[in-house]
Design a protein around this nucleic acid. Structure first.
Lengths: 192, 192, 192, 192
DNA sequence: CATGAATGAGCCTTCATTCAT
DNA sequence: CATGAATGAAGGCTCATTCAT
């Protein structure tokens, strides 16, 4: 009952494609021609298609690597001796950086939020679960407002990440300002 | 004093194109084929191109109509007997609705924020100016935090509008939640 | 029985168009968009079309001015105290320069040679007649071979002018070399 | 030693396209719509594009067949027991016929003379090399004038071929007359 | 008579996806 | 299984010519 005798060369190919795709995404954004990726990886488009039937599959695969870094941040924040507020603030920064690993990433991320089934949706639900855990932890500290959920937090940060990502000009300031909106809101604190 | 002896037929055609384009945008989003718009408007692609050399020009034109509604909201808010907070909150809702008039609108809006020169940029700077005025008014009421600018407010609402706009499912709830993030932030009020 | 009360403004317009067209031809070659010419002349395309129903008409008109210069050369050569050979050689040079007044001119000139009826054909037949006269004169001096006709001479020079006209690089040398082919042929003189 | 494992079907397709293109060139000249060629060959425009990224590539390919004939002429002339003059004369005729295989061919040929890099330039440099060899051979026989080079000879014949090629009317006579110009020049032999 | 808006076929190119090899 | 050739429907854009104003 041999399960799946995954051929070594096939596995190598898949990995190769993913690693090249990552380079392309970094250099040219997520809209690169898949043909170009295949060519650069030294395989035919059919091979790419076999391993990653859709662009989203490829993105999901590539994002796994970055997910590793994010998980480390998550783990360290969980155990860190920090207030809930500080913890969540750091998480939102890490989240935003992850969401902007490649130009154009926020778009498929949003799509996967709405249609949860896709390959990206699976990856993202992990991140949302982490966010949920951190939000809960913060809630126990009384550090977040009642309406805040992990999913909502994730979506809000995603919107800010998207809005801050300009084509040429990174404008870190804008990203920071948007972070403040999401964290503090524009409204002057009641009673101030 | 014949400044622009706009020919009647040309004007009619331009208006026709814009109105058909609006229909197409509503039905299929902003990515529709321009040739399809032309065909449906009963004109050749060259005619469409004459009036609107780029997709952005067409979007800008179509958006002008919606801008009229928004201006009314602006005017009424300016003169309304409301606290700065309430005023800004209502503005943010109107802004969001305007920004999601068509599927895919937030994208060109963001692009026009970064490259201010385009035809959309011109339209949008008006909206930003209105936002600025309302933010200033609210600031005099002590209703907004110091870091808030009109442009920043606009961008934050845009991000929320984008994040809330799903392909199929409007999910009003999400839009509201995102509105709260932008208004109140996730952080529990200091001192709570 | 007023014949044709050629309106003054119409005449002025026609002249204006021709003069602007000449500028465009010099700068961009004969392939310029007629719309562009019209726009630069400050008239509508319809007006241009009324005066010059085809591109060829426009070229023919513009070429008339250059024709004036060429006629002067012709007149001076006719009366000059020169050998038939020298005379014809100088004519071939003048002819070639006229034929390359604008980039792309040789093409319509050749077309008008074959379809003699067109507006250009009329102009060119004058030039061919001059050439004929000079060839005859030279023949009486025993300076040309028997097979040479005015038309043939004209066509041979046209071919050389076309072949010498490169896009960027004028390469006068090539033009000279081609002139020698047409004058002397590649064959070593018999008896040498 | 599999150097180029050219797929059989691809090769067949490429050949098919080239052969259809040849037909179209013969019937309608070199300006045919490439889409039309593709359709007639029963392939999509993308397939044509894959094999021949530019019109020039297609022309170059099609010309290769004719080149075969020309090479045979070259080979037979090289070894023929002929005087240099006769040899070169025959070559000029073959050259002219090759240059007028299709309506409009002289234009890209001239372009490739100036910008030697393109796909046509490569093919043509072969022909020029052959011409050079024949000119040299003729020079050793004392059959050509000093100023004659292979390249110049080629260009002169090209100019004559262009000038002789009318749209409708082949006018063989004219072609012959132009041939005489290039061979003998219009000038009566010195000393006559 | 001038105007310039309208036409609309046609150009080349791209690229996700399929399928013969 | 890998390959890469083939597909073919768009896409945006141009411009000589016509004709309503």
């Amino acid at each position: 009952m041999a399960k799946a005798p995954v051929r070594a060369d096939a596995a190598r190919n898949k990995e190769k494609i993913a690693s090249i795709a990552r380079e392309c995404f970094v250099e040219q954004g997520l809209e690169v021609s898949l043909d170009a990726v295949a060519k650069r990886a030294g395989v035919g488009p059919g091979t790419l298609y076999r391993h990653f039937p859709s662009r989203e599959d490829l993105i999901a695969e590539v994002l796994t690597a970055e997910l590793g870094d994010l998980e480390q941040v998550y783990a360290s924040l969980r155990s860190a001796d920090l207030g809930g507020e500080e913890r969540l603030e750091r998480w939102s920064v890490a989240l935003r950086l992850w969401m902007t690993s490649y130009a154009g990433l926020p778009d498929p991320l949003r799509a996967s939020l709405d249609a949860k089934a896709g390959p990206l949706g699976v990856k993202c639900s992990t991140v949302i679960a982490w966010t949920d855990a951190l939000v809960d932890q913060a809630r126990r500290d009384g550090a977040v407002q009642d309406f805040v959920t992990g999913r909502g937090f994730y979506r809000a940060v995603l919107g800010a990440a998207w809005a801050a990502s300009a084509s040429d000009d990174p404008r870190e300031a804008d990203a920071d300002a948007l972070g403040r909106f999401v964290r503090d809101g524009w409204r002057a604190a009641p009673g101030v």
